[in-house]
Design a protein around this nucleic acid. Structure first.
Lengths: 238, 238
DNA sequence: CAGTGGTCTAGACCACGCC
DNA sequence: GCGTGGTCTAGACCACTGC
């Protein structure tokens, strides 16, 4: 389990930023950092690039590298893909309860999302995700049987995406996510431990592999008071 | 106006991918590319990193570098940017009411988001967006005065991003958007024409230009029953 | 095994901000 | 002028894939 150097630098800097620094504080210069960590400048820049992309720092040519405004008291998730990682990064203890796994013939809308023909089945996985023991997100995930044959509850001790990769050699390359605000009904509010009527994020996620085949469809409900959906939007033009 | 080498490589590869290649085609290996372009491997990797982040290519360790399944000519710039387009696509008639434009000294959180120093001002633009005459989204946009000096209400007959580009030659290349679910209070619910307590999407948007300088910060409230936030997530990791 | 991408080094010069 | 980040070189070894 040896991590690359630049990832160690990332973790270390991230911890320092979160524990010791304020927004707009200046970080040591790249040349100072390479001495401190005993690595090359390239390695330092790999680490800083990552932190910059994730919006944790920003750089100003000729001036230095600075701490961005960080969203502290809330848990920020980029997407569900990175649930565990982002939780640990923000110092929370993430857990996932796999509740049920069954083979079903999905409703028409789910079947359409997964490009299933009539009669084709999918595994339905119901999960509850918690941070520090508090329910945060409730989700139903549908996985086509033809792509993930013989999926078992015992596989799911691992991260779902690890299982996809290792047992089935499948990987989501692109996911479309739709996010909506809803008022929770009696039943869902109970699951998430809040009041009926409280605002919640409803997230629809459709993931496809490198052959453009849908491999996952998930509907989640996340507590509005504890969950922020974060995304990056690029405007690339030539 | 000489461009860095790696950006020339980016443009060139992007054009080739666009004109000559299909999804899942393999690109030349990094070692081949460095010979073709007569640059170092590091420079090639800088270029490929950029293309990978933008979802144009994906890389498989030990196998090669490939064209992504979906290469989008035009990337949506997220919720705000694509408001008009989303609406027209769904057959609705979008309108925007610019309500107020004033020069203000922003609160600390907004100032931090825009990297403003103490005392620096920003234009505050309040807008209401409607579809078929029905209020859909209410937003406050902050634009740094030093970047957009002398901004006038009359400029805003055009799309905001058109004004940025044409009058100020500024362009957002990356935006961070945070989306949260909230229950509307009395005042906000009135603006959006719904009941107090109804669920709503609260969207924070921070846009930066190609020099990493923040050029826009917007807080919006969108009706939960009529607005869906869409995004694409590229997962080339792990 | 050869070929691929992933990580890493130890230098170099350029462009920008500030005094 | 000096320190900053931005770009770039010419190597090296490691880890993974496929034959």
């Amino acid at each position: 389990m040896k991590k690359p150097l630049y990832q160690q630098v990332i973790s270390d800097l991230e911890n320092k930023i979160k524990s010791e620094m304020k927004p707009n504080d200046r970080l040591p210069s790249e040349r100072q950092l390479l001495k401190e960590y005993g690595v090359s400048r390239n390695t330092i820049r790999l680490a800083l690039n990552d932190l910059e992309e994730r919006g944790i720092i920003y750089r100003l040519h000729g001036k230095g590298t600075f701490v961005s405004t960080i969203y502290l008291d809330q848990t920020n998730l980029g997407s569900m893909y990175s649930f565990s990682e982002q939780m640990s990064e923000t110092g929370h203890k993430p857990t996932t309860q796999n509740r049920t796994l069954e083979l079903v013939t999905p409703e028409e809308d789910v079947a359409n999302q997964l490009n299933l023909r009539a009669g084709e089945k999918a595994y339905k996985l119901v999960r509850l995700r918690l941070a520090d023991g508090v329910p945060l997100m409730y989700g139903e995930t549908y996985l086509p049987e033809k792509i993930f044959p013989n999926l078992k509850m015992s596989d799911l001790k691992e991260n779902l995406y690890t299982v996809m990769k290792q047992k089935y050699n499948e990987q989501s390359i692109l996911a479309f996510e739709d996010v909506q605000a809803v008022n929770l009904d009696e039943k869902d509010s109970k699951v998430l431990g809040v009041k009926p009527g409280d605002a919640s994020l409803k997230i629809f996620r459709r993931a496809i592999n490198d052959k453009n085949v849908p491999i996952e469809f998930t509907i989640s409900l996340a507590r509005g008071d504890r969950f922020i959906y974060r995304s990056r939007q690029y405007n690339h033009l030539v």
